[in-house]
Design a protein around this nucleic acid. Sequence first.
DNA 1: TATTCTTTGTGATATAATTAACTATGTAAT
DNA 2: ATTACATAGTTAATTATATCACAAAGAATA
Lengths: 209, 209
Amino acid sequence: MKTLKIPEATIIRLSVYSRYLYMADKRGIVTISSGDIADGVGVSPAQVRKDLAYFGEFGTRGVGYNVKDLHRHILKILGLSNIWHVALVGLGNLGLALSSYKGFRERGFCICSIFDTDPEKVGTIVNDVVVEHIDRLEEVVDERGAQIGIIAVPAGFAQEVADRLIKAGVKAILNFAPVVLNVPPEIELRNVDLAVHLEVLTFNLALQK
Amino acid sequence: MKTLKIPEATIIRLSVYSRYLYMADKRGIVTISSGDIADGVGVSPAQVRKDLAYFGEFGTRGVGYNVKDLHRHILKILGLSNIWHVALVGLGNLGLALSSYKGFRERGFCICSIFDTDPEKVGTIVNDVVVEHIDRLEEVVDERGAQIGIIAVPAGFAQEVADRLIKAGVKAILNFAPVVLNVPPEIELRNVDLAVHLEVLTFNLALQK
DNA sequence: TATTCTTTGTGATATAATTAACTATGTAAT
DNA sequence: ATTACATAGTTAATTATATCACAAAGAATA
């Protein structure tokens, strides 16, 4: 796998392609062209081919791509050919929603540890997982070997949680708290700020007027 | 306000700056430089200045920016100087989390209509809003003048909900269903696919090995 | 007032990403 | 076999975005 600086946009599109291929496969489609995929997900055919070209040659000229094959390849590229263990910190409304989000399980993510501080929640079982107290975070994460952490705590606690997740051995963090986290460069970090998405919309709406 | 094709990345950063400025203001800081903002949010000072330059001149050379002023300006740019009415469709775990998400209210978004099909939920009050049946979507959205719709229904129903929201007069849609929606070009659409974010992380993790 | 210091705003440059055009390769029909 | 056709892979051109470097402008100091 050659890896000369892949644009993040490409990764995001691969993820979208894979979902489309999965559906196509379920509908019994065997072969698909870059144009078909492009139409299906709203990008240009050249874009589809370019994105795939970063990783190798998966199609046959004149024909197209084998749906199952390509799907498998993309999952492999995205690192989804094995199960990832995810630790979720914070079981507010958002944490609860994330813990039961089917999309994660379908794609091979297992939220196998959940942490909160609320004594009412600690010890209860949520989606087959026993909720632990945050005090035990390092211990539990280390013991279970969680590779990814999801932060769904209030902004004020996010940095502390991030520090502790990293100390416990987590290699990547998905942060839902609306705050800029400071992490070492080797830690993969992504921020999801739900309000930001709405603000991009309102910016565009405000322009139209 | 001159508006010659602003990069979306700029809008997202403006949103981040505004949150940082809000915090700086709360801490009593009166004046701030592009370097301070840059350090605080993890970008370069030149980037901060360039982003702002799309919209005008807000600082004084040799001094920096007035925190309150700049914050106000950015909110204005993002279209956040008035309240936006948002209709939420789908009250599963995710919908519930979104309906109670404080980040929305803080930024001037009011989720003033909620829809679901579940008879157990319809008629109940969630975060001060009466849950309506989806059958009444067009009627209620039109009557209350919601400008933005949030789709938090299963993938299979998302397109239908989108169509109905648009018919009811919604101008922008935030879609949480993992599916590519088809909407007319004048409708602003953003997709938030939570699994995609995790997949960008695992792609990078997979690379490291 | 002149001088130095700071920091913005911006034009020029470099980098990155997308789009378009073209070439190579396989399939199917004549 | 030959020809026409379809479509992947790839190179080149275009467009978009980010970085750099410096002139302009205000503030502080001598």
